[in-house]
């Protein structure tokens, strides 16, 4: 009985997780992972699996978002293409270098950089 209850609760939890991811994805066109990864980890999914699974959740949501964004004609697909080759190269290089890079320090540097960027957007735009 306890197992059944746990399974049902988990299902509702995943429904909520999806709703948060979808809302962020549609609203900001990014940011789903920031919410999904810790939520998956709270559901006892190990960190590596949580990161991988979050992509499997966010990719289909991003396809839905792209459909709406294209429909609303906010942009053209061609606008994004120049960024794709560099992005793919960066993703591959980053994943190969991962074990040699001090992740903890990088997270703090990244945090500081986006705080500065947020101030720029908030006060100078």
């Amino acid at each position: 009985m306890w197992d059944n209850m746990k399974q049902t609760l988990q299902k509702y939890y995943y429904l909520l997780l999806g709703a948060v991811a979808g809302l962020l994805n549609g609203l900001f066109g990014s940011g789903g992972g920031v919410a999904v990864v810790p939520m998956l980890e709270k559901a006892d999914i190990p960190p590596k699996k949580a990161h991988a699974t979050s992509i499997a959740i966010i990719l289909p949501l991003s396809i839905v978002s792209v459909g709406f964004y294209l429909y609303r004609q906010n942009f053209q697909i061609m606008d994004a293409l120049p960024y794709v080759p560099g992005g793919l190269a960066g993703a591959v290089v980053g994943s190969l270098l991962l074990k040699k890079i001090p992740n903890d320090l990088l997270r703090r540097i990244f945090g500081a950089l986006i705080i500065v960027s947020s101030a720029r957007i908030l006060f100078f735009k």
Binding site: L17, V20, R72
Partner: peptide, 13 residues
């Protein structure tokens, strides 16, 4: 999560 996520995308957009 993909089911509710897809619906929430609409709300977000």
């Amino acid at each position: 999560s993909i089911l509710t996520g897809a619906a929430a995308v609409v709300l977000g957009v």
